[in-house]
């Protein structure tokens, strides 16, 4: 494969000639190798796939990524290697695809304020027995306040987003798609929810350090 400077990559990819065909092929192959490496070395959830299946997956993702790179070529600022910038796009394409596949059955509508977001204090105490009834009562009291803060300080949308993202670990972009928003806006929504919750709890005299200590094993 030809080694190119950033300027050569841009020139070759934007010139209608045989050079463009070669540059597209080189870019696609480079992205495919990077994606294959990531899929085969880092994704334990894909460990059951054969090398052939992973190769095919990497090929398909690299094809999509190459198209995405070409669509966004004007936004390359030139402050990194071109191939690093292109790989960033390829990583987003690949991981987004994997997230969508993994959470294809997730329905945000199943996450509602009627859910018991936090475990009942009694259950928590059974799970982590305390040496005395006073501590159990203290936990129960704090748990009630946390639950109350969750329901009163947050909007339904914030509650839903916080549970899905922070507690269930659902990727932002999966939740954002179902909320009809984008990942950036959802991040801000969840961030605001965290801050509101913290403010509400601290207003009730519950510092984070105190709660972490109280619920330690």
């Amino acid at each position: 494969m030809i080694e190119r400077t950033n300027e050569q990559w841009i020139a070759d990819l934007t010139t209608s000639s045989a050079g463009q065909t070669q540059a597209l092929q080189d870019l696609r192959e480079r992205l495919q190798r990077g994606i294959f490496y990531y899929l085969s070395r880092e994704r334990s959830d894909l460990a059951q796939l054969s090398t052939q299946e992973l190769t095919q997956m990497a090929e398909d993702l690299a094809q999509d990524a190459t198209l995405r790179v070409m669509e966004n070529l004007d936004s390359f600022r030139g402050d990194s290697r071109f191939t690093t910038w292109a790989t960033k796009i390829a990583v987003r394409v690949a991981i987004s695809d994997l997230r969508r596949a993994r959470y294809k059955d997730f329905r945000l509508d199943d996450v509602t304020a009627e859910d018991e977001l936090l475990p009942a204090a009694a259950n928590l105490n059974n799970h982590n027995p305390l040496p005395n009834p006073e501590s159990a009562a203290e936990r129960s009291d704090v748990m009630t306040k946390i639950d109350s803060a969750l329901r009163e300080a947050l909007t339904d949308r914030q509650y839903q987003a916080l549970e899905a993202v922070a507690l269930r670990g659902v990727p932002l972009e999966v939740v954002a798609e179902q909320m009809g928003t984008n990942r950036n806006a959802l991040y801000k929504l969840v961030h605001d929810a965290r801050r509101k919750l913290r403010t509400s709890l601290e207003a009730q005299g519950l510092s984070m350090d105190y709660m972490m200590d109280l619920f330690q094993d």
């Binding site: 960033k88 987003r92 977001l117 936090l118 475990p119 259950n123 928590l124 799970h127 982590n128 946390i146 916080l162 922070a166 507690l167 670990g169 932002l172 990942r183 950036n184 991040y187 801000k188 961030h191 965290r194 801050r195 919750l197 913290r198 709890l201 984070m208 709660m211 972490m212 619920f215 094993d217």
Partner: peptide, 26 residues
């Protein structure tokens, strides 16, 4: 159950003030 509570508290603790968003970060 403990894990669920820990996740919530850690999530609140990690909320930083300056709030760089995903696009700026990317």
């Amino acid at each position: 159950l403990q894990d669920q509570l820990d996740k919530l508290l850690q999530s609140i603790l990690r909320a930083h003030e300056d709030g760089m968003d995903c696009e700026s970060c990317n």
